[in-house]
Simulated scan of single mutants.
Amino acid sequence: MPNAIEQAVQSPLYIGLMSGTSLDGVDGVLVDFSRGTQVLQHASCGFDAGLRAELLALNTAGGQDELHRAALAANALVRHYAQVVQQLLSAGRVRPDQVAAIGAHGQTVRHRPQLFDGTGYTLQLNAPALLAELCGITVVADLRSRDVAAGGQGAPLVPAFHQSQFGQDGRSTLVLNIGGIANLSVLGTDGSVLGFDSGPGNALMDGWCLQHTGRPYDDGGQWAASGRPIPGLLAAMLAEPYLAQQPPKSTGRDLFHADWLALHLQRHAAQAAPVDVQATLTEFTAASCAAAVQRFGGDSDELLVCGGGALNTHLMQRLAALLPGLKVGSTAERGLPPLEVEAAAFAWLARRCLLGLPGNLASVTGARGPRILGAIYPA
């Protein structure tokens, strides 16, 4: 009699869940892989202020009773995951036993793949056993740590999916995912793939916007567009050593956090108007992304943007202005809306795991070779 995993891989239906560095909530997709990558349903669930604040606090070293708090936060996170799963199943009129697996990334609270003593780790809060119990579906989680164990960065993992979804023979394409952190995939004409975290995406912008307007993000970049970038502050932020490092490389809130910004403001813009700081942060994201494209984009003539940043009209306009030789557009133009790409990537990685296929690219993460990613929690 086939076991749960053997039964699961008979179905082409998978669910992918993603809660990223932006800490705004969960995006989920129901995907049919029988003919390419077809997203059947998309659902989302925002975080309440208390959970968002706790996840942000747990992303900062120190604090009392962290292990207990982290466990409770993981359980709360997974209940949000389960809510999104139920939305997907209901909208798609699909039973749990028809879904092969859920790819559940978890919430990154530490990402330090290369420490000074040559060791490293990446830590995502998750409770995959609880998720499997709540949903009655096999769960694939812990998708980064095997790559780190093999000497890799454990991030970004989406370039392999970008290649499968957007790669074209004989043509070089660039895919820029602007979530809390931005990452760039360079899909070469020969099938080669380079990918890395280019620097901040929405995280600094969103945090500043929430602090000064009470809104979780700058809708369309309208607030930033009404201000003026501060040249000295922008130059200082663009001098951040991480931006000049060679790939493979990855980053997160471990580097680009509120205290990092506060230090730059103290030194270069202590009396600046909040709107001008927002304009500067938006320009910082656009400029750091554009610099990565110019440095590593080769002969590509197209930049596809996904993630929440693709919905920031002002940011997209600044990218296009800084990259006049490229056609800058959304991944929606290639059949996958920007808020569905990353969740679909983790559904794809879950499928790779169940099929016993590697999910990482050594050319991207720097791992010693291809590895099967993920731990499986049968339904």
Rank of each mutant, 00 (worst) to 15 (best):
L88M: 07
V341G: 08
L265A: 03
T21F: 11
T173H: 09
V277N: 00
T60Q: 15
L123C: 13
F166H: 08
P216E: 04
G220S: 09
P229F: 00
I137C: 03
A4C: 07
L67F: 13
R69P: 09
Q114K: 14
Y14E: 03
F116L: 14
E340K: 14
A127N: 11
Q64T: 13
I15C: 02
G118C: 00
C135D: 02
S11T: 11
C209K: 03
Y242K: 11
M237V: 02
L134F: 01
F284P: 01
D218H: 05
D24E: 13
F33P: 11
H257D: 15
A321F: 01
V39T: 14
G221A: 11
D27Y: 12
I181C: 04
Y377K: 01
C209I: 04
A132Y: 07
S226D: 04
R253L: 15
A74E: 03
A127P: 03
N202S: 14
D219M: 12
M316R: 10
H314D: 10
G151S: 08
G188H: 10
V109R: 11
S363W: 06
A290N: 01
A57P: 06
G329A: 15
G62V: 15
L304M: 12
A160G: 04
A244Y: 00
G308W: 07
S330D: 14
A310F: 13
L194D: 01
N3V: 02
D117Q: 12
W260N: 01
S363P: 03
G63M: 06
V275I: 02
Y242F: 15
V148F: 05
D142A: 02
A291G: 08
R146L: 14
A129T: 15
A292L: 03
V148S: 04
G307K: 09
F116G: 12
L58F: 13
L354G: 01
R352I: 01
A224M: 09
N312S: 07
G106I: 09
A4H: 12
I5W: 05
F346A: 08
L23P: 04
M1I: 12
M18N: 10
R112W: 10
S330K: 06
L17N: 04
S330E: 14
M18G: 04
